[in-house]
Design a binder for these strands. Structure first.
Lengths: 388, 388
DNA sequence: CCTCAGTCTTACAACGTTGCAACATCTGGT
DNA sequence: ACCAGATGTTGCAACGTTGTAAGACTGAGG
């Protein structure tokens, strides 16, 4: 059933190689021959056999994107952007869901079973630096997220420490006294550790001493974990009046828990997240968050991978820091309500989503503007596509 | 650098074919030979070359999943489940994001460039039945979502008409008088049309005449579209007291718009969605929705694809309807608040998420239970994995 | 008419794997 | 001792493609 070069060649009365040359747009094919062959190709519906081509050339035109969970919004959004960026370079992206399992991460990082892909962009959860280093010689690899110390590989991410400090400073600037953090983990390295460090730095800087009762675990960084951690904290001895959650899902879970306790966000407790996923923009209250420049992350990852694939594999260690900024919305700054009606007035204002510096002062203005043009999200990009 | 069968064979002092037999777990290899060869394989780090294997056998062990947008929660959740279901059968899933573009959908459906994948599960947006039919002979294909009339292909989905009718009946049972629908589209077929039909059927059944002012467009089915449609409707002549949105994102956008108008959900306007994405479970108010059995959908899609791949490709048209049920939460049923504090009392109850029939009556009970054990979601499954 | 360069086309051999059929070696029954 | 069958092992060819080098046409210059 499938048509191959030979079939076309016979039918067009030329050699197999000439057809191949036409398909690959090689020079030294007379234009009338080219036209004739092309006509036959179209007529017979010939399509090149990728495995055979790859066997011969060693290149597949595919790259892998390995993420722990595709159904986590942050990864889903990033994946979408990476697919689009890769497409601009003519590559097809094969998305692999590793579930954070080491063996699957290794498989992806090493280029899938048998060098199926030409390169890999991975966001490793459980791979060690040693494994990454071992695997990455011989296969182009770009790491997404936190840098693994001295893995000798390319790496793209935001400055988690600085970003976490920005988030914390924002809460400090709002005169919150008991600022909690949710998302801590046991490891001494990785996302959790870095964001915790940023939080602690900002606190120290302001002369605040973090209380251990106000540091909650992050679990798997899902909504559920934020919900649980917040509940646990509210049952504890110290009630926080602000929470910095290490990602947006945790924050959304935490907000839900606060509601269940009858607490108002942001009046009783201000909440800040991290990632700027779309859910946060439409939540009520909309979520103040650290917005990594995901477009920049995606573009950089793909570009870096391209370099790795072209140059000698020993292109050395390179690192790109994508910018981030604080987006202030309703969950941290109560809009200026001239009188009563707290929550509803806030809601009516529409989700404020201005690009404010580290200070939350612009938020009220931005809120007013949002109310005017009825934009729910604010401050962030839109995207095409559809559902079903 | 890469080790191949021949290298192993030479090193182990056997023929290439014997090594191949060991790798593929074939019988008729003496156990000591097997052990020796295996040792060499491990020592040399041999890994089979997939393209070559595929060239020879015609099978890659890969299947494609083609969805319009991976960053839409419904697809992301479904993709996760499909990946896990395929894994149980030893297949690797290549996720392709088509953006709803016809050419990319065709490419995926036809098995990617050159039969890279053994089969495809696709959720087509713009492919016509004719194209599907043309492509699907010669390549195993399972369609996800609404059935394309007479495309002669396998198909897996929920009964959209019945489900939409269930949702609408729920609103009718709550004694809502002006029930709106958001998510309509111009096409006479597809998801939008079927859900609209279900809505209309349920209305007619109850002796209600739908008003055209209460039918809103769905656009791309994103939050933004729901936000806009709801705003437009609220600016119109008839203010609805209930809205059935054709997916959850529309519903979340609509709820946000209602808040911005100072309207209370569910007191002033009850809202029902469709898809049961996780966001809806943690939203405030949590979202009443139609929950398709996504596990069943994923499992059925993979199983059906397996049949298509094994049997003759002309396995004929088969169709699987996955079950669905209504999940009643806060956005449609105000919890029994003994006195005042409407919203807050509702929030304190925790998101009710009981599996109720078509009637909303069980919801209050369920809410009480949820408050007890502090489960925010309710009624739905949990999942492993992590963020970063 | 021959040569030579330039342009176009072709045959052949690989890429790494596995199906096939042939061969080799054992075991146990006559 | 011989054979039949079961059990292991092997060489060859093929999957569809492209790089290489060699071949076959052109037309211009000798």
């Amino acid at each position: 059933m499938p048509v191959n070069l030979k079939d076309v060649a016979v039918s067009a009365g030329v050699s197999v190689k000439t057809v191949s040359n036409v398909v690959n747009d090689r020079p030294y094919v007379r234009s009338d021959t080219r036209a004739r062959v092309q006509a036959v190709i179209d007529a017979m519906g010939y399509r090149p056999n990728l495995p055979a081509r790859q066997l011969r050339t060693g290149r597949s035109g595919l790259i892998a994107l390995a993420v722990p969970e595709i159904d986590v919004p942050y990864f889903a959004e990033l994946a979408g952007k990476i697919v689009r960026a890769a497409e601009r370079r003519g590559w097809t992206v094969l998305i692999d869901m590793t579930g954070g399992e080491r063996s699957r991460e290794r498989r992806s990082a090493a280029g899938f079973p048998g060098d199926l892909v030409d390169g890999t962009i991975a966001s490793p959860l459980s791979m060690t630096a040693r494994e990454v280093a071992a695997v990455s010689k011989g296969h182009p690899l770009v790491l997404l997220g936190e840098k693994l110390a001295h893995a000798g590989s390319s790496h793209v991410g935001v400055d988690s420490v600085a970003a976490a400090a920005d988030a914390t400073r924002h809460l400090i600037s709002l005169d919150r006294r008991r600022i909690a953090a949710i998302g801590a983990a046991d490891e001494a390295t990785g996302t959790a550790a870095l964001r915790l460090r940023g939080y602690q730095q900002a606190m120290a800087e302001a002369g605040r001493r973090p209380q251990s009762e106000l540091i909650g675990a992050g679990g798997l960084y899902h909504r559920e974990d934020g919900f649980r951690a917040m509940n646990a904290m509210l049952d504890g001895p110290v009630r926080p009046d602000a929470v910095f959650c290490f990602n947006d899902l945790l924050a959304l879970g935490a907000i839900r828990a606060l509601h269940c306790h009858g607490l108002d966000v942001p009046r009783d407790v201000a909440v800040v997240g991290f990632d700027d996923i779309e859910d946060g923009r439409y939540n009520t209250p909309s979520l103040t968050t650290i917005a990594p420049d995901k477009d920049a992350l995606a573009e950089a990852a793909v570009r870096l991978l391209g370099l790795r694939m072209d140059g000698a594999s020993g292109a050395g260690q390179s690192e790109i820091r994508a910018p981030h900024h604080l987006v202030v919305r309703e969950s941290s700054v109560a809009p200026l309500s001239p009188s009563g009606r707290g929550r509803l007035a806030a809601a009516r204002l529409g989700p404020a989503g201005a690009r404010a510096g580290a200070l939350g002062l612009d938020a009220a203005r931005a809120g007013g503007r949002a109310a005017g043009n009825r934009s729910p999200g604010g401050g962030a990009d839109r995207r095409g596509g559809g559902d079903r």
